[in-house]
Design a binder for these strands. Structure first.
Lengths: 109, 109
DNA sequence: CGTGTAAGGAATTCTGACACG
DNA sequence: CGTGTAAGGAATTCTGACACG
């Protein structure tokens, strides 16, 4: 009964279904890709495929747009968050290296 | 970072992608539906939509078929398992009722 | 900038049927 | 029984463009 976290990120949903799921027009969804807010995969002949994560992100985008936020600003925000994420990961990896060399210290918990 | 268990059961994948994911032909996938082994939903105009659960079930079916098991037998087996599941759920509900009336007893844990 | 729309073509999906076995 | 295939039509998706603002 465990859930496979991978499902959320598998790119399997076609644009028509994404449109139903998000309430956005296909035009809007394609435009947000053009503005680099979303990155679908493609089938062999070029049909876009999205993940549930993408659907969630699109809903976020739709909300921001409703508040008047521009696509450019949304992109800036995304990049900023990505930097934070990357920094966090680097930090964890560094910690891992230290532990590997100097031994595991039980953290709080 | 929690996973939403609902993703696994959301019917959002079109038959073409399911075919890629399972390695089964669309003909086979439709036939297994005809034999009541799988139950996709439909879009407004009738296009089939499958869940990740459906994909897993199809892979199971494919394996059984490879071993020579007939669709009828696969269906019988599924029905038997479903009965077991239902019995288990009835059992849990009954237990819930008892607890509700006579108080909660901490189980082993 | 963000989105609608008409345009034309290519790929997708659907159903019912014939085929083989 | 289980699956392939050709058939014809309807719906889907794609791209590039014009429109409005």
């Amino acid at each position: 009964m465990r859930e496979d976290p991978l499902y959320k990120n598998r790119k399997v949903i076609t644009i028509g279904v994404v449109s139903e799921l998000t309430g956005l027009s296909e035009r809007q969804i394609r435009y947000y890709e053009e503005r680099k807010l979303i990155f679908p995969e493609r089938t062999e002949r070029g049909n876009r495929k999205y993940s549930f994560s993408d659907v969630e992100r699109l809903i976020d985008i739709a909300n921001k747009r409703d508040e008047g936020v521009r696509t450019y600003e949304i992109r800036q925000e995304m990049l900023k968050n990505k930097k934070k994420e990357d920094a966090k990961i680097r930090n964890q990896m560094l910690r891992g290296q230290i532990n590997a060399r100097f031994g595991i210290q039980k953290g709080k918990n």
